[in-house]
Structure formats: C-alpha cells, structure tokens
Design a protein around this nucleic acid. Structure first.
Lengths: 233, 233
DNA sequence: AAGCATATTGTAAATGATACAACAATTTCC
DNA sequence: GGAAATTGTTGTATCATTTACAATATGCTT
C-alpha cells in the first residue's frame, strides 16, 4: 500500500458500490429480493439492490443503509460475502463492488420508495431472471456462503418469524440446503442443542393438529458460545 | 448501483488496494511475511505487503501481482478474505482494501526487490509487531479464515514441502489450530482419506529413526471432490 | 552394545449419526 | 357424531465415527 504522495492522485479514480443479496423464506422456498432498475446502466432490468458507497460513509454502514432504504428494516443480520473487481464489470468506469447478504423475516418486510428502485419483488432462488453486471456470480457466492454458514451457526432463525414450528425450521433448512432431513433425527438434534424453547402457544387456523410454537433463545446461545460451542446441523 | 450519469463522477474518487497475508510454516511455527515500508504513510514500519489496484488490472490479478513481486512465486494458493472500508483507515484519502491470504512453501521463497518494500521478514504469528492502518484486524480475519478452511479443505499441504512426514503435517495442524492432536488418531484419520501417498523415500540426516516421506496426491483429491467428498480434520 | 530419539501401530469404549413407523390431535366431511 | 384426512410428535436399534490410551520399532550416537 506504499506510495509516493505525488503518484497517489492517480489512484483515486475508482468507485465502490455495495450490492445486497437479501434472502427471505416464505415457508416454501428460499427467495431473493430484486429491484427493477430505474436508472442507467441496465435500466428496466431486475438486479440486486445496491448503491455507491459515499466518500464519508463506512463500508459496512453503507450496506446497512442500502438495506434500510429498500426495506425500512433495521437491526438485520448481514454479512459480507466477497469483493468483486474485474476491470470491465461496470460500463461507467472502474467500479468495485462489495457484496453482502442479509437475512430478513418476510413478515416484517415492506418495500420502501427508493431513489434507485422502481419496484422490488421476491424471486425464488431457482427462478432468478438474467441479471446484469456480475450479479449472477455474486448471487452464487452469497448462496454458497449462506449454505456454509447456516450449517455451522444458528442463523436460520433470522429467516423465521419470532414464533415458529419445528416443521417450519426443518423446511427452511431443506430449502436452503436443498436436501431432506429425517424429521425425528432433525428434531432430536435441534432440541438437543438447547437453543430454542417452547413458547407455550400453538398454531391456530390450521386444519389439522396444531403444532407447538417455539422461539429462539439468544441467551442460551450466548452461554454456549462462551463455552466454545459449535452448532452443526 | 443505479445512478444518473451526471452524479456518477462524484463517485470515482476512491482508491482500492490489496493487502496480502502471506503465511508460511517453518516446521515449528506459523509465520507471516511482513514488509518494512519504504514510503509514506507509515514509512519505516512493518506492515502487510500490499499495493494499489491499477485501473486496468482485475482485482484478483492485482493480489497475485503483489505476491509475485515480493516473492517471485507463481501458482500460489490464494484466497480473498474480506474487504475493509472504514472512512479513515488511510491518511491519504478514501482507500478501500481487499485482503487476501496466501500459503507458500518457505523453502521456495526468496525476497525480491520491490518498489514499496525495503525489506521483508517472517514473523511468528504470535509475535507480530504493532501494525499500521487496520492491518492488525486484517491479520486476525485472515488467521481465522485460514483456520476454518484448513479444517475442511486439504490446503495444509500448500504450506509443506513436496515431500513431508506425517509428523510435519501434524505439527502444522497443531500450529495453525493451536491445539494438539493424538498422533495415532491423527494419522489414522489422515491416511483414511487417501489423499497422500508414500513416496518410497525416507528422511535423511536425522539422528534417529527416519520417517517415511509422503506426498499429496492431487488426482485422488479431485476424484473425491467429484463424488462430493468433504475433508475434515 | 546400550542408550537415545523419534516413528509407527491397534483396540476398546464412548459418542454421534442413521434408519425406520406407530400413535396423537385437530379439522373436515359425510 | 363418527370416520377420514392431515399434520404433529416421539423411541429404539444399528452403524459409523471419535476418542482415549502405550508398547514396540528403527536408526543414530556414544
């Protein structure tokens, strides 16, 4: 990173954006929130939500900002995925992008007006339209990282309502990991981790035996972390 | 990432650098290659090797370039770690950095003259001097990522000579993961993966029973990968 | 030849993963 | 009101993996 002061001005000619892969789960499929671009380049195309990082804003803050301006949501689980910086990835010049993914509870979500999105919509992870820039590659990276992470950290709860059934969480894992789990074994393992507890409430408005509602118990998770605990499903 | 053409010029005022955490293993400790900075800012300080990303060079290529210009080495295992972009991380302006780590065989290494490094030296991972910028944080990220990766992918071999003993590889894992392994169990597990094979040669110049030399068998690894294999130590 | 240093190897016990199906609770339909 | 339909809930036996643990082998040095 060394440089001579004289040379250094040549370097300050890049732009940096953040792009967010916003995941949601509707009880059936894993979905991604895309925006319909209202400005060039690639106007009128579905794309990942993102924006330039202002010179006076920290990178992470910028990612949070994009998420909030689109969804109105705060305090969301986000994680950086990868930086992409091929020379010609953006038609307007040298634009690096840092990709993040976010996990949101779709029930909490409502689209906000935004300067760069005319519209936003959820797309099932297996029915994504053609995306501009290198957004398809970014999405692949994010999906893979989500899969790795969800197997070793209890982040799946971020995609579920506060109160959820054991069937719901199993279906979430099956959707994300694209494999099936044996119900008895899945529940045995999940419950043995002592990370979720019964709420005492049950499902209502279902035309069959109502399932017990559970909640994720953050305190217990923190206690486990201190003891060097590792989550693995 | 949308923008109006008129606004866009405001955004092209950032610089982007790559910083490399170059790991080596000398048979005893995990080490990191630092350079002694020959230019401002932070002249005459030990720091991670890095450089600005030229406008006409891909990001990944730039990381490879930094590594080669410092070590003369090519075809090295490298992986992106994380992007860092706090507003004030660099005194000369808004400079984002993308961190990479590399694994090299110290036997192959020889320092090259470089425009930005007066000197380079290996530092044991537990005896790192105070580093400028956010390099300490970058190093922590890289170390953590190396640990995660080395447990699930057979990348440890990148740090060893082509021919190595089972004791050497065990000591490498112990150094990186900062824990001890039971020799019998470690060997049993490693050999059961069928990723290394005997060379037929033995150690020489040791004043005790010479150990069998093994080599990493890439072909076998690739066959395993195709079948959906997972390495785990 | 004895001593030193590291290399090499097996077994038993405990733990964790997998395979597998019957009964329970509620609603709906007749 | 009872039968059918639908999903929820739970246990056990087998198999595979991980762990704990120490004696013998080989080459070198003196």
């Amino acid at each position: 990173m060394a440089m001579h002061q004289k040379e250094s001005h040549n370097h300050f000619k890049s732009a940096v954006t953040v792009d967010n892969v916003i995941f949601g789960f509707d009880g059936k499929a894993l979905k991604v929130l895309l925006i319909y671009r209202g400005a060039e380049p690639y106007k009128d195309r579905w794309a990942l939500p993102g924006d330039f990082v202002p010179l006076d804003e920290n990178l992470n803050q910028s990612a949070i900002h994009v998420l909030r301006s689109l969804t109105g949501l705060d305090n969301i689980y986000m994680e950086q995925v990868h930086a992409f910086g091929d020379v010609n990835r953006h038609p307007f010049g040298r634009v690096f992008t840092i990709a993040y993914y976010a996990l949101i509870k779709v029930e909490d979500y409502q689209v906000q007006a935004s300067s760069w999105a005319e519209e936003a919509a959820w797309f099932p992870i297996n029915e994504i339209p053609e995306l501009p820039f290198d957004h398809m590659e970014i999405l692949e990276f994010a999906k893979q990282q989500l899969r790795n992470k969800i197997r070793t950290q209890p982040i799946g709860f971020e995609l579920l309502p506060k109160h959820f059934t054991l069937t719901q969480i199993q279906e979430l894992y099956e959707a994300v990991l694209e494999r099936e789990f044996d119900t008895r074994n899945f529940r045995k393992k999940l419950l043995s981790m002592n990370l979720i507890s019964e709420t005492g409430y049950r499902q209502t408005d279902v035309s069959h035996r109502p399932a017990m509602l559970y909640k994720y118990d953050t305190k217990r998770y923190n206690r486990f972390l201190e003891r060097g605990f590792s989550f693995d499903i």
